[in-house]
Write a protein that binds this DNA or RNA. Structure first.
Lengths: 352, 352
DNA sequence: CCAGCTCCGGTAAACGTTTACAGAAAACGT
DNA sequence: ACGTTTTCTGTAAACGTTTACCGGAGCTGG
């Protein structure tokens, strides 16, 4: 781990100036003779260009950061999975930040952009405060936000459309003849919680179904909390024939409870999850789930950022990803064929 | 996004030299008066220290890389989940590399260590070639390898013990009275595939059960392949009463097939997975799985690396993580209580 | 044989920090 | 008041690149 060779070492060894070395290494026009000498010296010395020095001079780090609430979350994971290859193909490295859903941490990430250790940032904040907006406006590097920001915010933005997503799910349930559709939601003070509550009410209205607040239970976005909330809802309202769950984990919790209470899914109660994570396909019965396009959002965000890194000053863009409904056994009753596409599993080599 | 202020800007504004500015910013002893002036100027200008320049001078980047085969893999994911907070607490950023299980890409990562864009690397190679070993020996920054390396390799190393893991599973199945235990494995030319095959044979011998090659089927580490392999094994060998699967995805595929063929799990056939990923708890019936301690391995690797970054020259260490058996319904038949610990789910906020 | 070109390569400055060194200023003792 | 010690600050070099600029070498044409 001794100090590696620099262009100076090479220059000496090859008997040329460091400028020539740099030129050769960067493929700038140079006499063949010089090229050979430099290449030979570089080869012998095992030279590798120092990325830090290069970044200092060039003012580019070839790194991009992605800040999410929690790496453990399958939703963000799906995003990373898409972001990484896009960036890699363009020659960027990915720096990961897990903010643990703490607003202060997010602000911190935004602030540290000033350190210029990355060329740009993709961020998916849990909620967007005034402080966020101020920092985004003042950011010293391009930022792409995944998630809603107030109208008129000058920033590249990728959104899901959970309103339409919920509507898709409720239409589906309605078409299956379900009329007492409960909502098991997460906290109302989060962006997703709030928007799903609103979308639920709206969709019911469109369908001509009455809004009954007994059919709504607020828990949190975890399996255990989902189970608790679903149990409470069922106890209060035994006649419910479908459960719309604000995410897949909640839905898994609901499945646990329904199973324990001896109800059949979907015959007695149909269940719909949200986010369409890997877990939805793995559960039994497999879970019908609204995909809000985490993967597409990640990809779109990465592409927006790359474009911005090349184009500097263009108008901020807004990309909205269309939701899809992945129908599975928890509503339709029919299990999909056993053969699954390879893409929803992935390499599972594991070193021992 | 105009050029930000540098210590020169501050020095000018505060009427002191850049050396003083640097000292104040680094908390070195300085006259109170000077401190005040510098702080005021820095504040007014919204100064943020340039990480690249600092790195160049200090020869430290405060970044660490983690190279894995595939971010989509729950096993690596569990590692990232542990590595990230450890590094973060120590003031390091995490740079992610997904090598897509391509050896050349892994070599590339090792090579790029010479660029010094990170202070160290944690790598979990799918298989370890001579080229790997050469690069590791020549690496210009500390490396920690997750996975087996040949005896005597001078490198910090964290290993799982899949031999004991398989033994745990087979003992468990044997204790439940199962005698015709099949193995659904992944490719034999991968480290995990090979070691699991060997461990299976060994465990059978210890238990006094005959090794029957009809009971072994090789597929790949995906759900669909797992299903195919399990189907082949069952067709050839209808009397099998337990399936040891080389990972959880294979096990899920096996569950699909068993269900489709009308066999009850675990009454007719017990199933054990491996890696104990989130999917194991989510599936139905929930999957008994051998945990090879991905989380612990990640944590151990991060800690080894940090220690090495501080201690420079100490002897390489080997940490072996003990496997555990997570018994669930696919062998015991009893579903766990509905309430799950919060830790196996995680925040699922999601911006829309 | 020389003006005018082109082509190369070297010198040096710059990117934004940190830090060794030395000199200035302040504090102290006698 | 002076030497000595202590504390502080400024100058300049260094980290390893890239690149603007300039001068020298080699050609061409007249």
């Amino acid at each position: 781990m001794a100090d590696g060779p620099t262009i100076n070492t090479i220059a000496e060894r090859a008997g040329v100036s460091i400028a020539s070395v740099s030129r050769v290494l960067n493929g700038l026009p140079t006499r063949q003779d010089t090229v050979r000498k430099v290449m030979a010296a570089a080869e012998e010395l095992g030279y590798v260009r120092n990325a830090v020095a290069r970044s200092l001079k060039s003012r580019r780090t070839n790194q991009v950061a992605f800040a999410m609430a929690d790496i453990g979350n399958p939703v963000y994971l799906a995003m990373v999975r898409q972001i990484q290859p896009v960036l890699k193909a363009a020659g960027y490295r990915l720096v990961l930040h897990s903010t643990d859903a703490i607003a202060a941490d997010e602000i911190d990430v935004l602030h540290s952009l000033g350190e210029r250790y990355v060329d740009g940032l993709i961020m998916s904040p849990l909620r967007v405060t005034g402080e966020h907006l101020k920092m985004i406006a003042a950011a010293r590097a391009p930022v792409v936000i995944i998630g809603s920001v107030p109208e008129g915010t000058q920033v590249d933005n990728v959104r899901a459309d959970s309103r339409t997503g919920v509507k898709l799910a409720l239409d589906h349930l309605h078409a299956l003849g379900r009329r007492r559709i409960g909502l098991v939601n997460g906290p109302l003070d989060t962006v997703p919680g709030a928007s799903r509550a609103a979308a639920y009410a709206e969709a019911l209205e469109t369908l001509g179904l009455p809004y009954d607040e007994d059919l709504v239970e607020v828990g949190d976005f975890y399996r255990a909390e989902g189970a608790r909330a679903a149990a409470a809802l069922l106890a209060r309202n035994p006649g419910v024939d479908a459960l719309m769950c604000a995410n897949d984990l909640i839905a898994l919790g609901a499945l646990d409870v329904l199973r324990a209470s001896g109800r059949r899914v979907p015959q007695d109660v149909a269940v719909v999850g949200m986010d369409d994570t890997d877990l939805a396909a793995a559960s039994w019965p497999s879970l019908t789930s609204v995909s809000l396009g985490s993967a597409e959002r990640g990809k779109a965000a990465a592409e927006l950022l790359l474009d911005r890194l090349q184009n500097g000053e263009r108008e901020p863009r807004l990309v909205t990803v269309r939701p899809r409904l992945a129908v599975r056994a928890s509503t339709s009753g029919a299990e999909p064929a056993v053969t699954l596409s390879r893409t929803d599993s992935n390499t599972e080599g594991e070193a021992s």
